[in-house]
Design a protein around this nucleic acid. Structure first.
Length: 602
RNA sequence: GCCAGAGUGGCUCAAAGGCAGAGCAAUCCCUUCGUAAGGGAUAGGUUGUGGGUUCAAUUCCCACCUCUGGCUCCA
């Protein structure tokens, strides 16, 4: 989930990436090999990326990952030929002649011409000689193919020409290369490690959630252990929001079409909503957002300036009919439970309220051990080329943007702009989190909305008795349960801090003789409000430890003859550390302390 | 939605145009153990669904469903 602007930012950084010329050169070797191996294949384009490189091809036959070894063999051969990379500057006409049989290159040439940039080409091998490869390219490259380090093709994918779904779908091949074999191996190992943290894999192993064909794609089923994590997050949100002056509301999952006509969502997002159901001659929709419902609560009576800011919070279920191909584990689903709230305030209060929302993000993220390096703000702005995508007059958009930027700058966070990333009713900010797997995703969407209050006529009576429109702030710092827990699973590799751990203590009696002592400890842990389980299976202690370890239970209370006689506990942390002979109340006290403090330590 | 790949007990994976197999998990029995797997037995499957080809299909063909890697999209 990398935003366009992040991409362009990455491209800028790529210029300083010492691996870039080599990777770019490796990409040229890839398309040279492809041209040699697949007659009739046309090269479209491909760059070096932060992770390696890719190239898009137009080919009528089939290319699959099974072909990789063959392609890699040919690439190795081209590298062994040690062909020089030779740069040449050419005119538009020359270029068009050279690439006359390739509409993608011609398209590209016109683009470059329109931008008024110089055309350069790179030859691999002697210019114009048979067997030499030439491509439209700004460089830079290494001096010859022999300078290319160990490489590997990674995956194959479809990609639209120019990223436009109306264009033909091309075949994209991803690969990477490094200076040294060890670096490549390390990278490949990292990919493997990342797979182990994949929330879909861990979600199954830790029994947190599942999907069922009979229920439908993208509709999450939370198991008891996953539900505990949801409840802990909700507890956190409720506690925190209460302190910050939020009030809780509750709203239904559906509404009449009328509501979404007022909001303006229907004309814009009908395709992204589940089809309506017809009840008593009226169309009802599953809500794709909570705002309109909250707005109606605001509207349920006359409001005074004295009431503002009014903050309505709800962990609300919404349903979005995401494209089937977009679904992805918990990260992209069709049933979403949002950490939603809407703040209704005066325009004068707006910036400060928005700043408080940003500070709330900071507070939450710190709890999960995330620093400001792990997240950044993406400011979604309108794309001037797609005016029909947006509602409302420009003055309001500009004012909203100005207020949000003011709050961001006061917060000390930094933001990147995403042209075209605005909501249809106003600019928005997304907070992107970077998981330890390197994957980034939008965790929280926030908006300072000057538009909807007008559509819903959300007014208040001001000091002077006049009716004024309020400002609505949409915020969701913990995002949705689905996406946020998906992120947390990967962030912690399933080893949640005590407060989020579905089972906090596994009590492991060494033999049956300790069972009654184990039960007593369990009851005391339960009494203290902790989540504990006795492993009473007829298994060896080693097997029980192993299972608790694999379930990433933070504390194992191991009790044998010695402990049961002394009334103590031998604590084993999931880190492998052992703490012998701890008094029972001390052991319980330790877990309780970490739980209450929402500590990251054990 | 688009391109490509995949779908075999709860999980991880094998085999194969002619009786579908293993490990883990489950159940029962034995074992009662000192910091990451004690032993044995039993049960568990219309090989994602529906069509077709064939004497015979889980295997080959077609359609659909779901998942995976990407692309487009993401209020």
């Amino acid at each position: 989930m990398i935003y366009k602007d992040t991409m362009s930012k990455m491209k800028k950084e790529l210029k300083n990436d010492p691996l870039m010329p080599m990777r770019h050169s490796c990409e040229h070797v890839l398309h040279q090999a492809m041209v040699e191996l697949y007659p009739g294949l046309k090269r479209a384009m491909g760059p070096a990326t932060a992770e390696g490189f890719y190239h898009d091809f137009d080919y009528d036959g089939k290319i699959s990952e099974e072909d990789f070894s063959k392609i890699e063999e040919r690439m190795t051969e081209i590298i062994r030929r040690d062909l020089p990379f030779i740069k040449e500057e050419i005119s538009v006409n020359e270029a068009k002649k050279l690439f006359s049989d390739n509409e993608y290159k011609l398209d590209w040439i016109n683009d470059i011409k329109d931008r008024g940039e110089k055309l350069t080409i790179y030859w691999t091998g002697k210019p114009h000689e048979k067997g030499s490869n030439v491509d439209l390219c700004a460089g830079p490259h290494v001096s010859s193919t022999g300078k290319i380090g160990p490489f590997k093709l990674l995956s194959i994918a479809g990609a639209y020409w120019h990223g436009n779904e109306k264009n033909k779908m091309l075949t994209r091949i991803y690969g990477t290369c490094f200076e040294k074999k060890e670096d490549l191996d390390k990278y490949l190992k990292q990919l493997e490690e990342a797979k182990k943290r994949d929330h879909r894999k861990l979600g199954q192993e830790l029994d947190l959630f599942s999907f069922a064909d009979e229920v439908g794609p993208g509709l999450v089923l939370w198991s008891p252990k996953g539900a505990i994590i949801r409840e802990e997050l909700e507890k956190l949100a409720k506690e925190t929001e209460k302190k910050l002056g939020y009030q809780r509301v509750a709203t239904p999952h559906i509404a009449k079409h009328t509501l979404f006509e007022i909001s303006g969502h229907l004309p814009y997002y009908k395709d992204d909503m589940y089809s309506p159901m017809m009840i008593e001659g009226e169309e009802y929709y599953l809500k794709g957002m909570n705002c309109p419902h909250h707005h109606m609560i605001y509207k349920s009576k006359k409001r005074s300036y004295k009431e503002l800011p009014l903050r309505y919070a709800e962990y609300g279920m919404v349903y979005r009919f995401e494209q089937s191909g977009a679904l992805f584990g918990l990260m992209r689903v069709r049933s979403i439970c949002q950490n939603d709230a809407h703040i209704y305030c005066t325009e004068e209060q707006a910036e400060e309220e928005f700043l408080k929302v940003l500070e709330l993000h900071d507070f939450y993220y710190k709890l999960f051990g995330l620093t400001r390096d792990d997240y950044y703000i993406v400011m979604g702005l309108p794309d001037p080329k797609k005016k029909d995508k947006y509602h409302g007059d420009k003055a309001l958009w500009d004012k909203a943007e100005k207020l949000m930027r003011g709050a961001i700058s006061k917060s000390g966070m930094h933001s990147v702009d995403d042209i075209g990333g605005a909501a249809f009713y106003g600019p928005k900010i997304d907070i992107n989190i970077r998981s330890v797997t390197g994957r980034e995703f939008g965790a929280s969407t926030n908006q300072l909305d000057l538009y909807m209050p007008g559509r819903f006529n959300l007014t208040y009576t001001d000091k002077d008795g006049s009716e004024k429109l309020c400002v609505a702030i949409h915020r969701a710092p913990l995002g949705s349960h689905e996406r946020f827990i998906g992120f947390l699973i990967e962030h912690f590799a399933g080893a949640f801090p005590v407060w989020l751990s579905p089972v906090q203590v596994k009590i492991i009696p060494i033999s049956e003789n300790e069972l009654s002592y184990a039960r007593k400890i369990e009851a005391n842990l339960d009494e203290a409000g902790l989540r504990a389980e006795v492993d009473d299976r007829s298994e060896t202690m080693q097997a029980k430890i192993r299972d608790a370890q694999l379930q990433k239970v933070p504390y194992m209370f191991i009790i044998g003859k010695k402990e049961s006689e002394a009334g103590t506990i031998s604590i084993r942390l999931r880190t492998g550390e052992n703490i012998p002979d701890v008094k029972e109340d001390e052991a319980i006290g330790r877990v309780l302390k970490m739980y209450k403090e929402r500590s990251l330590d054990l």
